[in-house]
């Protein structure tokens, strides 16, 4: 415990739910099958961060929400076993979160920087409004994923989904990169309809077919540039580093979706002086 000031577990459950070993602070979020309340769990996590712990492992997580919300310690790693609840890593700014299981809804909400790796699925509204950072989802995601991801200054958010994504992927997108690999997809296209509706920045790389009827207003199919290939190669390399080799084909089977304009609806309004 030396160096971190831990003398006993900091939780008041009285069941010894925390331990510190080999530089890793572990929290059992479900002692005897009883899930710890999220306020308790997040409080313990925050205390650990305050004491400069840089590696935290959570076990038996069952639906606890808001894990690591606003966590800002750049070198912090949080491993999560179980099923973290909604809004995992909301407003995250720096740390790496790794989920060994599925994540629920709204993962990485308004993330600023950092990394979220999910060894499973991440359901609806993943990556909402992310301004930076990287998210790697081994499995599939749900509806409304990557909505209004945006770039700002040096920040450029990236989201890689191994499986499929449903409707409204990249809606309102204003920057960043979304990659959908479609591994295990039962349909020729791994994405749904209203793809990139209202997109006015950023780009998406979809491995598989994208029909015109899938594109939302403002989205178009574009040519891949050498720069795109380089970026994609980097993201895929990182994806493989987490989840192992998954792709056998090259870049030719990717479809790039990009905004037709940075101001897609500017012609909609009548400005007559009535």
């Amino acid at each position: 415990m030396q160096g971190h000031g831990f003398t006993a577990h900091e939780c008041d459950c009285g069941q010894g739910c925390t331990s510190f070993e080999g530089g890793t602070f572990s929290i059992d979020a479900g002692v005897d099958g009883v899930p710890m309340h999220y306020r308790e769990l997040n409080c313990v996590i925050r205390q650990a961060i305050e004491r400069n712990v840089d590696r935290i492992m959570l076990r038996n997580v069952t639906g606890q929400r808001y894990i690591a919300a606003t966590a800002s310690k750049k070198d912090l790693y949080i491993g999560i076993h179980g099923t973290p609840g909604n809004n995992l890593g909301a407003f995250l700014d720096g740390p790496t979160l790794e989920v060994f299981g599925n994540a629920q809804d709204m993962t990485g909400n308004t993330m600023n920087s950092g990394k979220i790796v999910v060894h499973g699925n991440a359901w609806d509204v993943t990556g909402l409004s992310a301004r930076g950072g990287k998210m790697f989802i081994k499995g599939s995601s749900g509806y409304r994923v990557g909505i209004h991801m945006k770039e700002y200054g040096q920040r450029w958010p990236s989201l890689v989904i191994g499986g499929t994504a449903k409707d409204y992927l990249g809606e309102y997108m204003a920057g960043g990169t979304i990659v959908v690999l479609g591994i295990g997809s039962k349909t020729p296209s791994p994405v749904g309809v209203s793809l990139g509706a209202g997109i006015h920045g950023g780009k998406m790389f979809i491995r598989g077919k994208v029909g015109q009827e899938q594109l939302g207003p403002g989205a178009g199919i574009a040519e891949m540039s050498a720069e795109d290939e380089k970026e994609l190669e980097g993201l895929l390399g990182e994806f493989v580093s987490y989840f192992g080799p998954v792709l056998e084909r090259g870049f030719s089977c990717f479809t790039k979706v990009a905004p037709l304009s940075s101001r897609p609806f500017s012609g909609k309004y009548d400005k007559t002086n009535l």
Partner: peptide, 8 residues
């Protein structure tokens, strides 16, 4: 509504 209910 949430996966955790099933996992539990």
């Amino acid at each position: 509504s949430e996966e955790c209910a099933i996992r539990l």
